[in-house]
Amino acid sequence: MTDFRALTIRQPWAGAIAHQTKRVENRTWKLPAKHEGARILIHAGAQLDRNAQIYGPHFGAYSAVVAVATISGCHWSDEWQCCGNWAFEKSYHWTLDDVIALPEPVPAKGRLGIWTPDADLLTAVTAQLALAGAE
């Protein structure tokens, strides 16, 4: 897990990635090519997206890593829902595969953009992946 990066996503979207079927992350900026195909920690931000509805109790984790995923691609779209119900128009769609929800959220302070987690956070996430049977 030494090459892992992390991405902070506001709730309820981080929880929808971890526990439902959200497999596209909408961004205003293009995914840097070096991150395509990379495993990434999905970090739930400290704040709720006020434009979103809360769908259930599993969205309660804030300021914590809640899942691990692979960024499998990125494309721009002018169309609404071009690659699923979660895809917004006029945005970059980062497609996510191989999502593994952590059994317990791992507390961590997030950052803007794609960031590098420290060794302690990676150790804690690795332990959670082992509990999930996905190490």
Rank of each mutant, 00 (worst) to 15 (best):
V99L: 00
K109D: 10
N85H: 13
I114L: 15
T95I: 04
A87I: 04
T95C: 11
T95A: 05
E79C: 05
K90T: 08
Y92N: 04
V106D: 00
L96M: 03
I100Q: 14
W80N: 14
L102Y: 01
L96D: 02
K109E: 15
A87D: 14
E104R: 01
I100C: 04
K109Q: 15
S91K: 03
D98N: 14
L112D: 05
I114T: 09
C83M: 05
L96T: 05
I100Y: 07
V99R: 00
D97N: 09
I100N: 04
R111W: 12
W94Y: 13
G110H: 08
G110Q: 07
A87K: 00
T95S: 11
N85L: 12
W80A: 12
P107Y: 09
E104H: 05
V99Q: 00
C83G: 06
Y92W: 15
A108Q: 04
P103Y: 06
L102E: 00
I114R: 11
R111Q: 15
E89C: 05
W80R: 11
D97R: 06
G84T: 10
W86P: 01
C82G: 08
V106L: 10
K109V: 15
K109Y: 11
V106Q: 00
K109P: 09
V99N: 01
I114S: 08
L112W: 13
E89G: 08
I114F: 15
G113R: 11
Q81I: 08
A87S: 07
R111K: 14
C83K: 05
E104W: 01
D97P: 00
P103T: 04
H93S: 01
C83P: 03
H93F: 07
V106N: 02
C82Y: 03
P105F: 02
V99K: 01
C83N: 12
L96C: 02
C83Q: 11
G84A: 11
S91W: 08
E104P: 00
G110M: 07
A87Y: 02
K109C: 12
R111C: 13
W80C: 07
P107I: 12
A108R: 04
A87E: 06
E89Y: 10
A108F: 00
A101S: 13
L112T: 12
V99M: 02
G113D: 07
K109L: 14
G84R: 02
D97W: 04
E104A: 06
A87W: 05
P103K: 00
I114A: 09
C83F: 04
W80H: 14
A87Q: 13
W86F: 14
A101E: 12
P103M: 05
D98Y: 05
W80F: 15
K109S: 10
L102P: 00
K90W: 10
I114E: 03
W86S: 06
D97I: 04
D98C: 06
G110A: 12
K90M: 06
G84V: 10
P105K: 00
E89S: 13
C82V: 05
A87R: 01
I114N: 02
